[in-house]
């Protein structure tokens, strides 16, 4: 297992897991796990099924309480935050969500404003502007009055991203955002996320596709058996040895002809030398 430290430059982190143990009931997924999310990064977590990547993501956004250790947000344990206060700082695109029957795109995106609203302070001009910005950024503004259940899968996922954006959090976590999309919509969505990242959002996404991960991540976290196998810039950490060790996949790593990032090319039995 390779431990690769981040490159020397000073780096700040608003969100971190400190020595967390993560478990569902009695099944322990991760023990003593420490992870920092670099500010301004597009961090991608990869690893084989069951390695604990979604579990880590869930703990970062308060969906799973660590059985020991703590998740720290802006220097304070996230468990000390009021729920809405934390929700104004960290947003989530869940793996599965349900749209209420008959809801329109604009209405659904508006639901993302909940953490900014209270019993007294209901819908405000600021909410409206945030919703409009989120719909424009995700290219769904023209669909505003359409019912969500009439949209295609790709459009629908953009609407869910818009809802998360309307929350206006500096940090946004995405749990397998590309899973149910066909390939063109996957790239489409990842391009959108990269654009949001350049505009200033810190993003953390769990992805399945290694080549998409290396292409879009500015910071890569590779997990195996609930622990970090490697982390850092994709170019620095992504080697054939790592892929073989973590995924059990013999491969060569070449340069992606389009993006110049590491590209995994599996070697299969029939083609091995």
């Amino acid at each position: 297992m390779t431990e690769i430290s981040p490159t020397g430059e000073a780096r700040t982190s608003r969100l971190a897991a400190e020595a967390v143990t993560l478990a569902y009931d009695r099944r322990v997924v991760s023990t003593d796990l420490t992870v920092e999310i670099p500010d301004g990064s597009f961090t991608v977590i990869i690893g084989p099924n069951g390695c604990g990547k979604s579990t880590l993501l869930r703990s970062l956004v308060r969906l799973l309480k660590p059985s020991s250790g703590q998740v720290v947000l802006d220097g304070r344990a996230v468990s000390d935050y009021r729920a809405k206060e934390a929700a104004r700082l960290v947003g989530l695109l869940p793996q599965t969500s349900q749209a209420p029957d008959g809801i329109t795109v604009a209405d659904l995106v508006g639901r993302g404003r909940y953490p900014h609203q209270g019993l007294i302070r209901q819908w405000s001009p600021a909410d409206k502007e945030a919703v409009d910005r989120a719909m424009a950024a995700t290219g769904v503004a023209d669909l505003a009055s359409r019912p969500v259940d009439q949209l295609s899968g790709g459009q629908r996922q953009r609407v869910w991203v818009a809802m998360a954006l309307a929350q206006e959090t500096p940090l946004l976590l995405l749990d397998e955002p590309t899973t149910y999309l066909d390939i063109a919509h996957q790239i489409d969505l990842l391009d959108l996320l990269a654009q949001l990242n350049r505009a200033g959002s810190t993003l953390v996404a769990v992805l399945h596709d290694l080549n998409q991960a290396t292409r879009y991540a500015t910071h890569l976290i590779v997990m195996k058996d609930g622990a970090i196998a490697a982390e850092g810039a994709p170019r620095d950490v992504f080697t054939p040895e790592l892929v073989h060790d973590v995924f059990g996949l013999p491969c060569v790593v070449i340069e992606d002809p389009v993006s110049g990032t590491p590209l995994v090319v599996p070697t299969s039995l029939g083609h091995r030398e």
Binding site: R82, A87, T96, S97, Y114, Q167
Partner: peptide, 15 residues
């Protein structure tokens, strides 16, 4: 209204 979006989304919104 938030719970209609699923438990994960509702929690992420601070419910």
């Amino acid at each position: 209204r938030q719970l209609e979006l699923g438990d994960d989304a509702a929690r992420a919104h601070g419910v």
